[in-house]
Nucleic acid binder design. Structure first.
Lengths: 111, 111
DNA sequence: TTGTCATATTGTAATATTGCAATATTACAA
DNA sequence: TTGTAATATTGCAATATTACAATATGACAA
């Protein structure tokens, strides 16, 4: 006990949950929103934009990278981050399917 | 240190992160998917469908309820759960906005 | 080289999460 | 009433997460 029992769930649901989980921290969501606004962004900008220490920001960037939401390119002394196209596409499809499925039974929900 | 510093973020981003966070566990995502498939669902069904103990399922249902993703209606000895319309709508808007903003700068990303 | 800037890593303390056994609680049926 | 079924709550152990100081690494500039 204590840790999530990933082994009892399908790989797909574990992966989807990991994506939502990565977006489920305000600092990481702030990073994603910054990348949505500015398209690309160097790590140091985030360190000055978000009032958390540099190691903490670095750690959050790692989480986002690990699930594939962002990618980083080394540019001299800096790392330039941007959103990962295929991951965004996957989120689009997942939420899209979810909403279609939801709409299908909106006529007679009795809760 | 140790706990998330919610106070340094806007309420909105904290709330959105809380929603993603609630979806960020395979058991909770499985519950949401079950509700998408069957529209409504009694708690006991989930307890037999997902191989986790009854208290654990109950706790996950509480997390989903707290952020407003699901709602439960008492029906005799059971509780009938369904997805919360306004929350789903909020997720639709958020992801929609996100994707629109993302599409706007897809022509010249150089990462 | 040496210094400095941007980033990553490591170690660690504080806190949160996950999961379950045991135990309520509540509603109904016999 | 008594029993039982469905759910919630409590307490606790195991584990994960968050944040940061200290330190390492790598790139560039003087």
């Amino acid at each position: 006990m204590g840790a999530t029992k990933h082994e009892i769930f399908h790989d797909q649901i574990n992966e989807e949950a990991a994506i939502f989980n990565a977006l489920g921290h305000p600092a990481r969501l702030a990073i994603v929103k910054t990348l949505l606004t500015y398209k690309t962004c160097v790590g140091n900008y985030l360190t000055h934009e978000i009032p958390l220490s540099q190691p903490t920001i670095s750690q959050h960037l790692k989480v986002l990278k690990n699930v594939g939401i962002i990618q980083g390119t080394i540019e001299g002394k800096s790392v330039c981050y941007c959103l990962n196209h295929s991951l965004i596409e996957r989120l689009r499809v997942f939420v899209g399917d979810m909403l279609i499925q939801y709409d299908l039974h909106q006529t007679n929900c009795n809760c």
